[in-house]
Design a protein around this nucleic acid. Structure first.
Lengths: 202, 202
DNA sequence: TGTACATCAGTGAACGCGCGTTCACTGATGTAC
DNA sequence: TGTACATCAGTGAACGCGCGTTCACTGATGTAC
């Protein structure tokens, strides 16, 4: 299986290390040790340390672009759910999925590096800030069409929803990082969903 | 004047450098060059590079604790303003003040380091996440007492307001960092204030 | 007032160390005939 | 089937470099008598 090639193992280890200590806090020797090879072997798979980061960003971007839901997918996901239940279901899927751990780690790397790495900056703007808000906005538009929410400003509603969630995700990520309890943050997320749903009630 | 002592100049330069390149991205030689002294001179003022960071965090914490407004100060600031005008005034003060540039830079350092530095983690939780929300909550309580806002859940309202602003401040900080236009982010802030005010209208 | 001494910020040279990267190599595996 | 050769992942040793920090020093300023 291709999932266990040395190249992939280098990427896995790098994501885990970079997300905890930042790109500059991790050495090629750290990565090699985590993979179980010698540092010179890394260069059989990547031209430089920078290229490892680039490859991680490439994979993230591809994965994010593939997760943009189509209009049909959104309608199907919404199904017969109320606004509140829809967001709660989405949140539980997000929290429960182990698959998102990888994406969460890469998001952390992007937040780390966005102030000095132009690629990370672009990904932060397009994927973390803009994309998330955009999907949320499309869902609210759909909900409005179906009469699930009142005739409110969907842009402002999407900002209030997604930007709050972004901060809460950051706080959640920080808690997890240090092994602290995440209950309070999760409760804040649920409470925020209830609040936004109530505010937009038809 | 004490503001131009070598020690203070080292702190100033460190804040500027750390906030742009992170603690590990800046060397003692970088700091010395920015101040205009030799690297060995740094050690006449600080025991180690780590101690510079600690001192910066100390100053930040002291400054933050001094800016907790008293109940009287809040009442006075609210004056006869409407909810919307109060927040807009606060935002313009925040954006306009050059004095906050320093605090903004240190906030950036804290966000940078909070995943690996325990002190930064504690400051992030207490000063960036909790404190801001708490002051906002107190303002909403006051507004509710005066009938300026409806009988809504002030905790949820404070979360929606302050956590959204936190993300927007992060986005603003990113834009400024790269010399990109901040108009769109500022407009999002204003629009969010209008939205929250409308939502809580009595 | 002048002299002797203490204090203190700044300096230049050096230290040991970990960094990213290179390179000649080894040994296993695949391919051609 | 066996032999010759190419390919390729992994290795150990070494490189030049920048890092944080130390240390003996210098020269200016302050203090005591």
């Amino acid at each position: 299986m291709s999932g266990t090639s040395t190249k992939d193992r280098i990427l896995e280890a790098s994501i885990e290390l970079f997300s905890n200590r930042g790109f500059y806090g991790v050495s090629i020797r750290d990565i090699a040790k985590a993979v179980g090879i010698k540092e010179s072997s890394i260069y059989n798979h990547f031209k430089s340390k920078e290229e490892i980061l680039d490859t991680i960003f490439d994979q993230f971007q591809t994965a994010m672009e593939q997760t943009i839901p189509s209009e049909e997918a959104l309608e199907k996901a919404l199904g017969g759910l109320s606004a509140e239940d829809f967001w709660k279901t989405g949140l539980m899927n997000f929290v429960g999925k182990t698959q998102t751990q990888r994406m969460e780690d890469i998001s952390k790397i992007i937040l780390y590096e966005m102030f000095r790495n132009p690629r990370a900056r672009d990904l932060a703007i397009s994927e973390l800030f803009t994309r998330q808000q955009d999907v949320v906005r499309r869902v609210f538009v759909l909900m409005k069409e179906r009469g699930l929410i009142a005739d409110v400003d969907v842009d402002a509603l999407a900002t209030a929803y997604s930007y709050t969630m972004l901060s809460l995700q950051l706080e959640m990520s920080l808690m997890k990082n240090w092994g602290l309890a995440t209950d309070a943050v999760l409760e804040k997320m649920m409470s925020h969903i209830r609040f936004v749903s109530r505010v937009a009630e038809p």
